[in-house]
Amino acid sequence: MTKKHILSILVDNEPGVLSRIAGLFSGRGYNIESLCVAETAEPGESRITMVTAGDTLILEQIKKQLNKLINVIKVADMTDQDFVERELVLIKINAKAEHRAEILRIVDIFRAQVVDVSPEHYTISITGDADKITAIFSLLKPFGIREITRTGSIAMFREMKNKN
């Protein structure tokens, strides 16, 4: 059964790493739903957070194939574990005068922020996990969403879990 997985991949920050990983996925027909890359606190190391999907066998292959790449240091599958997930999303929506109050209420409930305004629109910034993002999308949709930019998920294991 196909299921969504969040992988946290620690890599040596060298030229070509991202291309190797992207190439592995396209070459073997695996899918990448989102991808987020940035340096860690350790010089020369980057962390890639990737959301992918597949059945158990495919996921096992994906993890093994990633581990096989020479400059992949560690692959962790966060799925079914206790972790914190966040994504930052910018949403540009239509904001006519008569809708502004309603939109602001939604923004408030979700602890989002309006970061840019024009007579006809709002740009809203929100962070949260996948469920929260989906929820705000569905509430804002009726107003007319003009554009969306998402960072893709980043995630981290919860500390409690590791201490057990």
Partner: peptide, 14 residues
């Protein structure tokens, strides 16, 4: 060349 040969090498360098 490193781009072209990435999928058909175990590893490559520039």
């Amino acid at each position: 060349v490193t781009g072209i040969t990435r999928p058909c090498t175990k590893w490559n360098y520039l």
